[in-house]
Design a protein around this nucleic acid. Structure first.
Lengths: 145, 145
DNA sequence: TTGCTTGCAAAGGATTTGCAACATG
DNA sequence: CATGTTGCAAATCCTTTGCAAGCAA
């Protein structure tokens, strides 16, 4: 948390951007959440601490956190962009329950390797990827029986 | 193409839906395109043949084609939903060039197998997935050198 | 005739943007 | 004090929806 603030501070000064109380509040609140959040969700949480904050500020600064390398955008395909921690939180993919929305983070180095190989096969240099696995989680499967 | 029309016709009558000239035009135009299209793109093409068509009709019927199993939605994450052929056009993933937007369809049965295994590991029953590989295609890499 | 479909325009939801007032370096 | 930043509301983008008129079965 200390480290992240440091990184952010450096990013700001390096880019001639300013350190405002809103920015600090947004960063802190974002870091405290373990799960991915949407801008709207974060806005709702932050409003409680500072009712005068505008939601555009939250949108703007989540984008900024992504640029600073502290956040990462995730798009589950439901029309809402979410943000998750990017610092000290290595790349992973998501397993999402179609019925309750529960998500699990997964990593598979073999798949990552294969992806790179596929890209090369077609002359592409792979920069990144998105992989979302949709299904029904154990809990929901029990319930529907 | 004959087959697809047949499937659509059966789908319509089975669901008490009607066979309209607009629906036929949309299906035909969609089938003639090899690449994925957005509703807007398809609308632009169709307007030339029938200037009186409304774009809501195109949106509505692309959804319908998906339900009938003839189309499949693809979401590259740029805010626009695209549709590609689903009939006789097995599942595949996409390799997308970040710089020119070129896309290549790819399939890898090993990856698919691994995905299923990962899901099972977490007690999920996999229903579907999305995998998009982003990178720079051969052409764009040459140009930027 | 019944009720599904259409075209239109308005509504929707998430996100972005213009702007004047404000605060930071 | 120059310029980045904020909050607000309006605007944007894609897509959906309400509705009256029009058609298919």
């Amino acid at each position: 948390m200390r480290e992240e603030r440091d990184i952010f501070g450096k990013y700001l000064s390096r880019h001639n951007l300013r350190d405002t109380p809103q920015r600090e509040l947004i960063l802190d609140t974002f870091l405290k959440r373990e799960e991915h959040v949407s801008a709207e969700q974060l806005y709702d949480i932050i409003k409680k601490r500072d009712p005068s904050i505008g939601q555009a500020t939250v949108y703007r600064n989540l984008k900024l956190l992504s640029e600073a390398g502290l956040a990462r955008e995730v798009d589950f395909g439901d029309g809402v962009l979410r943000y998750e921690h990017n610092y000290n939180h290595p790349h992973h993919d998501h397993l999402i329950c179609r019925s309750c929305g529960k998500t699990v983070e997964v990593v598979d180095t073999v798949i990552e390797e294969l992806q790179k190989r596929i890209a090369e096969q077609y002359g592409f240099e792979l920069t990144d990827h998105k992989m979302y696995l949709y299904g029904n989680c154990g809990n929901c499967r029990k319930k529907s029986k």
